[in-house]
Protein backbone atom coordinates (compact mmCIF):
# COMPACT_ATOMS: atom_id res chain seq x y z
CA UNK A 1 0.00 0.00 0.00
CA UNK A 2 2.77 2.40 0.97
CA UNK A 3 4.70 1.49 -2.16
CA UNK A 4 1.68 2.23 -4.33
CA UNK A 5 1.26 5.64 -2.74
CA UNK A 6 4.88 6.47 -3.39
CA UNK A 7 4.54 5.43 -7.01
CA UNK A 8 1.50 7.62 -7.60
CA UNK A 9 2.80 10.76 -5.91
CA UNK A 10 5.08 13.25 -7.56
CA UNK A 11 8.27 13.52 -5.54
CA UNK A 12 7.85 17.16 -4.61
CA UNK A 13 9.01 18.66 -1.36
CA UNK A 14 5.64 18.21 0.36
CA UNK A 15 5.39 14.49 -0.33
CA UNK A 16 8.97 13.94 0.76
CA UNK A 17 8.18 15.79 3.98
CA UNK A 18 5.01 13.79 4.60
CA UNK A 19 6.80 10.51 4.03
CA UNK A 20 9.75 11.49 6.17
CA UNK A 21 7.60 12.64 9.08
CA UNK A 22 6.62 9.20 10.43
CA UNK A 23 10.16 7.99 9.91
CA UNK A 24 11.41 10.81 12.09
CA UNK A 25 9.13 9.64 14.92
CA UNK A 26 10.42 6.11 14.50
CA UNK A 27 14.03 7.14 14.68
CA UNK A 28 13.67 9.73 17.47
CA UNK A 29 13.63 7.24 20.36
CA UNK A 30 16.79 5.60 19.03
CA UNK A 31 18.50 8.96 18.80
CA UNK A 32 17.36 9.90 22.29
CA UNK A 33 18.53 6.56 23.61
CA UNK A 34 21.91 7.06 22.09
CA UNK A 35 22.18 10.38 23.90
CA UNK A 36 21.10 9.05 27.34
CA UNK A 37 23.49 9.98 30.07
CA UNK A 38 25.10 7.01 31.69
CA UNK A 39 25.72 7.00 35.43
CA UNK A 40 29.20 8.24 36.11
CA UNK A 41 31.56 6.04 38.09
CA UNK A 42 31.34 8.54 40.95
CA UNK A 43 27.53 8.35 41.00
CA UNK A 44 27.59 4.55 40.86
CA UNK A 45 29.99 4.58 43.77
CA UNK A 46 27.70 6.95 45.66
CA UNK A 47 24.76 4.60 45.03
CA UNK A 48 26.74 1.63 46.31
CA UNK A 49 27.31 3.39 49.62
CA UNK A 50 23.59 3.98 50.27
CA UNK A 51 21.53 1.54 52.33
CA UNK A 52 18.90 -0.69 50.78
CA UNK A 53 15.59 0.24 52.39
CA UNK A 54 13.39 -1.19 49.67
CA UNK A 55 10.07 -2.75 50.59
CA UNK A 56 7.07 -1.53 52.54
CA UNK A 57 7.51 -0.33 56.10
CA UNK A 58 4.92 0.25 58.80
CA UNK A 59 5.19 2.55 61.78
CA UNK A 60 5.33 0.84 65.15
CA UNK A 61 2.13 2.26 66.53
CA UNK A 62 0.76 5.43 65.09
CA UNK A 63 1.46 7.92 67.83
CA UNK A 64 4.52 10.12 68.09
CA UNK A 65 5.47 8.41 71.33
CA UNK A 66 5.73 4.63 71.25
CA UNK A 67 6.67 3.86 74.81
CA UNK A 68 3.92 5.54 76.71
CA UNK A 69 1.64 2.51 76.71
CA UNK A 70 -2.13 2.66 76.37
CA UNK A 71 -3.43 6.19 76.43
CA UNK A 72 -6.79 7.84 76.41
CA UNK A 73 -7.22 9.97 73.35
CA UNK A 74 -7.78 13.65 74.06
CA UNK A 75 -7.44 13.27 77.83
CA UNK A 76 -5.30 16.01 79.32
CA UNK A 77 -2.29 15.17 81.37
CA UNK A 78 -2.12 11.49 80.58
CA UNK A 79 0.72 11.54 78.10
CA UNK A 80 4.04 13.18 77.50
CA UNK A 81 3.88 16.26 75.36
CA UNK A 82 6.27 18.99 74.26
CA UNK A 83 7.94 21.22 76.86
CA UNK A 84 5.71 24.15 76.06
CA UNK A 85 6.18 27.57 77.55
CA UNK A 86 3.33 28.80 79.73
CA UNK A 87 1.41 30.39 76.85
CA UNK A 88 1.50 27.28 74.64
CA UNK A 89 0.88 24.94 77.57
CA UNK A 90 -2.30 26.84 78.39
CA UNK A 91 -3.40 26.65 74.77
CA UNK A 92 -2.59 22.94 74.66
CA UNK A 93 -4.73 22.22 77.71
CA UNK A 94 -7.58 24.25 76.26
CA UNK A 95 -7.26 22.49 72.93
CA UNK A 96 -7.41 19.08 74.60
CA UNK A 97 -10.85 19.98 75.91
CA UNK A 98 -11.97 21.52 72.61
CA UNK A 99 -10.75 18.43 70.74
CA UNK A 100 -12.79 16.17 72.96
CA UNK A 101 -15.92 17.94 71.70
CA UNK A 102 -15.12 18.01 67.99
CA UNK A 103 -18.22 16.00 67.20
CA UNK A 104 -20.42 17.77 69.74
CA UNK A 105 -23.11 19.91 68.10
CA UNK A 106 -23.88 21.69 71.37
CA UNK A 107 -20.28 22.70 72.15
CA UNK A 108 -19.56 26.30 71.14
CA UNK A 109 -15.96 26.07 70.03
CA UNK A 110 -14.80 22.56 69.11
CA UNK A 111 -11.40 21.89 67.61
CA UNK A 112 -11.40 19.54 64.63
CA UNK A 113 -8.37 17.38 63.98
CA UNK A 114 -6.17 18.86 61.27
CA UNK A 115 -5.93 15.44 59.63
CA UNK A 116 -9.67 15.64 59.05
CA UNK A 117 -9.49 19.19 57.76
CA UNK A 118 -6.67 18.61 55.28
CA UNK A 119 -7.13 14.86 54.76
CA UNK A 120 -3.39 14.72 55.19
CA UNK A 121 -1.06 14.18 58.11
CA UNK A 122 1.59 16.78 57.37
CA UNK A 123 4.68 17.05 59.54
CA UNK A 124 5.61 15.78 62.03
CA UNK A 125 2.60 13.46 62.09
CA UNK A 126 3.74 11.82 58.88
CA UNK A 127 6.48 10.06 60.85
CA UNK A 128 3.76 8.13 62.71
CA UNK A 129 0.79 7.16 60.59
CA UNK A 130 -0.95 3.81 60.08
CA UNK A 131 -0.04 3.88 56.38
CA UNK A 132 2.59 2.25 54.17
CA UNK A 133 6.06 3.80 54.11
CA UNK A 134 8.51 3.51 51.19
CA UNK A 135 12.00 4.97 50.85
CA UNK A 136 13.31 5.87 47.42
CA UNK A 137 16.96 6.68 47.82
CA UNK A 138 19.34 8.25 45.35
CA UNK A 139 22.58 10.09 46.06
CA UNK A 140 20.97 13.47 45.37
CA UNK A 141 17.55 13.01 46.89
CA UNK A 142 15.43 10.70 49.02
CA UNK A 143 11.67 10.42 48.70
CA UNK A 144 9.72 9.11 51.66
CA UNK A 145 6.42 8.04 50.17
CA UNK A 146 3.63 7.53 52.68
CA UNK A 147 0.87 6.48 50.31
CA UNK A 148 -0.50 9.81 49.06
CA UNK A 149 1.91 12.08 50.94
CA UNK A 150 5.48 12.33 49.70
CA UNK A 151 8.37 13.95 51.48
CA UNK A 152 11.08 15.39 49.26
CA UNK A 153 14.46 15.33 51.00
CA UNK A 154 17.28 16.91 49.06
CA UNK A 155 20.69 15.42 49.81
CA UNK A 156 22.58 17.21 47.05
CA UNK A 157 24.17 19.70 49.38
CA UNK A 158 21.72 22.53 48.82
CA UNK A 159 20.72 24.90 51.58
CA UNK A 160 17.18 25.91 52.50
CA UNK A 161 15.59 28.55 50.27
CA UNK A 162 15.91 32.12 51.50
CA UNK A 163 13.30 33.15 54.03
CA UNK A 164 11.35 35.28 51.57
CA UNK A 165 10.79 32.20 49.42
CA UNK A 166 9.36 30.10 52.24
CA UNK A 167 5.76 29.71 53.32
CA UNK A 168 4.14 27.30 55.70
CA UNK A 169 3.12 24.02 54.09
CA UNK A 170 1.91 20.65 55.34
CA UNK A 171 5.30 19.00 54.87
CA UNK A 172 7.61 22.00 54.95
CA UNK A 173 10.99 21.98 53.23
CA UNK A 174 13.50 19.23 53.88
CA UNK A 175 17.20 18.90 53.23
CA UNK A 176 19.38 16.04 54.35
CA UNK A 177 22.74 14.38 54.30
CA UNK A 178 24.20 10.99 54.98
CA UNK A 179 26.42 10.30 57.97
CA UNK A 180 27.56 6.83 57.01
CA UNK A 181 24.35 4.82 56.77
CA UNK A 182 22.31 7.33 58.77
CA UNK A 183 20.03 9.72 56.91
CA UNK A 184 19.91 13.06 58.71
CA UNK A 185 16.93 15.23 57.76
CA UNK A 186 16.23 18.85 58.65
CA UNK A 187 12.72 20.15 58.07
CA UNK A 188 11.46 23.71 58.46
CA UNK A 189 8.61 25.88 57.22
CA UNK A 190 5.79 23.61 58.35
CA UNK A 191 2.38 25.20 58.60
CA UNK A 192 1.38 25.86 62.20
CA UNK A 193 -1.82 24.43 63.66
CA UNK A 194 -1.26 20.84 62.53
CA UNK A 195 -1.78 18.15 65.13
CA UNK A 196 1.28 16.06 65.98
CA UNK A 197 -0.81 12.91 66.32
CA UNK A 198 -4.21 12.04 67.77
CA UNK A 199 -3.83 14.78 70.33
CA UNK A 200 -3.59 18.47 69.47
CA UNK A 201 0.17 18.63 69.97
CA UNK A 202 1.02 21.68 67.90
CA UNK A 203 4.08 23.61 66.86
CA UNK A 204 4.77 27.15 65.74
CA UNK A 205 5.85 27.96 62.21
CA UNK A 206 9.38 28.37 63.58
CA UNK A 207 9.66 24.71 64.57
CA UNK A 208 12.59 22.73 63.21
CA UNK A 209 12.46 18.95 62.99
CA UNK A 210 15.71 16.98 62.95
CA UNK A 211 15.51 13.29 62.14
CA UNK A 212 18.22 10.65 62.20
CA UNK A 213 17.04 7.50 60.41
CA UNK A 214 19.16 4.36 60.51
CA UNK A 215 18.67 0.64 60.16
CA UNK A 216 19.01 -1.11 63.51
CA UNK A 217 18.06 -4.63 62.35
CA UNK A 218 17.38 -6.32 59.03
CA UNK A 219 13.74 -5.21 59.05
CA UNK A 220 13.79 -2.34 61.52
CA UNK A 221 14.45 1.35 61.04
CA UNK A 222 14.90 3.78 63.90
CA UNK A 223 14.09 7.47 63.60
CA UNK A 224 15.45 9.70 66.36
CA UNK A 225 13.51 12.94 66.20
CA UNK A 226 14.29 16.21 67.92
CA UNK A 227 12.02 19.22 67.64
CA UNK A 228 13.16 22.71 68.49
CA UNK A 229 10.65 25.51 68.60
CA UNK A 230 11.87 28.87 69.91
CA UNK A 231 8.34 30.24 69.95
CA UNK A 232 6.53 27.42 71.75
CA UNK A 233 9.10 25.33 73.67
CA UNK A 234 11.33 25.94 76.66
CA UNK A 235 13.79 23.30 75.45
CA UNK A 236 14.12 20.75 72.61
CA UNK A 237 11.73 17.76 72.56
CA UNK A 238 12.99 14.36 71.47
CA UNK A 239 11.39 11.01 70.81
CA UNK A 240 12.10 7.85 68.81
CA UNK A 241 10.00 6.16 66.16
CA UNK A 242 10.49 2.72 64.63
CA UNK A 243 9.40 1.23 61.34
CA UNK A 244 9.11 -2.48 60.62
CA UNK A 245 9.45 -3.88 57.09
CA UNK A 246 6.69 -6.14 55.83
CA UNK A 247 7.95 -9.66 55.36
CA UNK A 248 6.06 -10.04 52.11
CA UNK A 249 8.45 -8.45 49.64
CA UNK A 250 5.78 -8.58 46.94
CA UNK A 251 3.06 -6.83 48.95
CA UNK A 252 1.14 -4.18 47.06
CA UNK A 253 0.58 -0.62 48.16
CA UNK A 254 -3.17 -0.09 48.06
CA UNK A 255 -5.15 2.94 47.05
CA UNK A 256 -4.32 5.67 49.55
CA UNK A 257 -6.91 6.88 51.96
CA UNK A 258 -8.93 9.67 50.38
CA UNK A 259 -11.50 11.92 51.98
CA UNK A 260 -14.41 14.09 51.03
CA UNK A 261 -15.91 11.86 48.39
CA UNK A 262 -19.47 10.59 48.36
CA UNK A 263 -18.38 7.52 50.32
CA UNK A 264 -16.94 9.59 53.17
CA UNK A 265 -19.40 9.15 56.03
CA UNK A 266 -17.55 11.56 58.35
CA UNK A 267 -18.04 14.99 56.79
CA UNK A 268 -17.27 18.18 58.66
CA UNK A 269 -20.56 20.00 59.21
CA UNK A 270 -20.61 23.39 60.91
CA UNK A 271 -17.10 22.82 62.20
CA UNK A 272 -17.96 19.46 63.71
CA UNK A 273 -16.98 15.97 62.66
CA UNK A 274 -20.14 14.02 61.99
CA UNK A 275 -20.92 10.34 61.61
CA UNK A 276 -23.46 9.46 58.94
CA UNK A 277 -25.53 6.40 59.71
CA UNK A 278 -27.64 5.43 56.72
CA UNK A 279 -28.99 2.53 58.65
CA UNK A 280 -30.07 4.48 61.71
CA UNK A 281 -33.69 3.95 62.70
Amino acid sequence: MATRIVQTLRPNALTIFLLALPLSFLTFPMAASAQATANSPDRLKAFSQLPDWTGIWRSRGAALLETEGPVQIFKAGNRDHPPYNSEWEAAYQTNLVRAEHQGDLSYPNPLVDSHTVYCAAGMPRLVATPFDYEFIITPEKTWIVVEKETRHIYTDGRKFPPEDELWGTLLGRSIGHWEGQTLVIETISVKTGLWGDTTPVMFSDQARFTERIRQTASDTLENQITVTDPVAFTKPWSFVKHYVRLRDARAWVSEPETCGGPEDRNPIVNGRVTVTLPGAK
Partner: peptide, 28 residues
Protein backbone atom coordinates in the same frame (compact mmCIF):
# COMPACT_ATOMS: atom_id res chain seq x y z
CA UNK B 1 -5.28 -3.62 76.17
CA UNK B 2 -2.95 -3.14 73.23
CA UNK B 3 -4.96 -0.22 71.95
CA UNK B 4 -2.89 2.78 70.92
CA UNK B 5 -4.23 5.87 69.25
CA UNK B 6 -3.60 5.26 65.57
CA UNK B 7 -6.56 6.87 63.95
CA UNK B 8 -6.70 7.63 60.31
CA UNK B 9 -8.27 10.67 58.72
CA UNK B 10 -10.67 11.88 61.36
CA UNK B 11 -11.27 12.10 65.05
CA UNK B 12 -12.87 9.30 66.99
CA UNK B 13 -14.03 11.67 69.69
CA UNK B 14 -17.59 10.77 68.76
CA UNK B 15 -17.08 7.28 70.10
CA UNK B 16 -16.76 6.16 73.70
CA UNK B 17 -13.21 4.92 73.31
CA UNK B 18 -12.95 3.84 76.93
CA UNK B 19 -15.99 1.57 76.63
CA UNK B 20 -16.62 -1.46 74.51
CA UNK B 21 -19.58 -3.56 73.55
CA UNK B 22 -19.90 -6.92 71.84
CA UNK B 23 -22.71 -7.31 69.36
CA UNK B 24 -23.71 -10.24 67.22
CA UNK B 25 -25.74 -10.08 64.08
CA UNK B 26 -26.09 -10.62 60.37
CA UNK B 27 -24.11 -8.67 57.82
CA UNK B 28 -26.36 -6.50 55.67
Amino acid sequence: VLCLPAKAHHSFAGFEMDKSATIAGTVK
